[in-house]
Design a protein around this nucleic acid. Structure first.
Lengths: 116, 116
DNA sequence: GACAGCTACCTGGCATGACCATATAGTAGG
DNA sequence: CCTACTATATGGTCATGCCAGGTAGCTGTC
């Protein structure tokens, strides 16, 4: 049950944060979904599956944050490359600012216990 | 629409994080809901309403993370004070560890763009 | 050529939690 | 009496992460 609570909490805590990470991962250039999954799997606490990344990317495209383009792979199925639009880049900036603020707030509370 | 996306994203990103903050706010001693709302309102990015805090506290009590006790107020309605149980304190520790890991991961991605 | 295994994409459905609006109630001041 | 502040509580809506499952191309092996 303790593990249940923790597992569930982790799931909830990832909401939104994953969108930020995926958007940020696209900042370096065009990438495809499967690649992002593999990359994020190497970063602590950010492991995601394919059933998570594709809905996110679809949403991004629907909202005009990214452009998508199919490209053949030297070996394997075709890949769908995504890259940031100006709008996506602008939104990423605002999200990063918001993240910095929230992070500072959480750090403050967790560090002091808000005893002031 | 850009504001819509950002507002919605912020809402989602707070999920889980708020639970961590509320639990952390209780670390310093017993507190009641309305007080926590007022306290968190002073911390950037963590402003919450009363419709948010009470479900969180109810969940905590249901899961045995906190104890609750009614106490009269010198002026105004009675207050319900919450304080951490050992179980809640233990879980808070694990959540803090998890938070540190996720925070580091997000920082890494957002800082490098994952270009490696 | 049958099969396993990896790459790569996509979708339906479920559970969860933040937030709005709203309700209730005690106290104080005009 | 009415407004305002304190204080707790709830029902409904909505977005999201994730599991399970499905499709399909390519490689290597027996």
């Amino acid at each position: 049950m303790e593990e249940d609570f923790l597992a569930n909490w982790t799931t909830q805590a990832r909401k939104g944060l994953l969108e930020l990470c995926v958007l940020a991962a696209l900042r370096g250039g065009r990438r495809y979904g499967y690649d992002i999954v593999k990359r994020l799997s190497g970063v602590g606490g950010l492991v995601i599956g394919e059933g998570t990344i594709y809905p996110i990317l679809s949403r991004f495209k629907k909202d005009g944050l990214v452009d998508a383009a199919l490209a053949e792979s030297p070996d394997g199925p075709a890949r769908k490359y995504y890259q940031l639009t100006p709008r996506g880049r602008g939104l990423l900036g605002k999200m990063l600012a918001s993240w910095a603020e929230v992070r500072a707030g959480v750090d403050h509370i967790t560090a002091t216990g808000d005893e002031s």
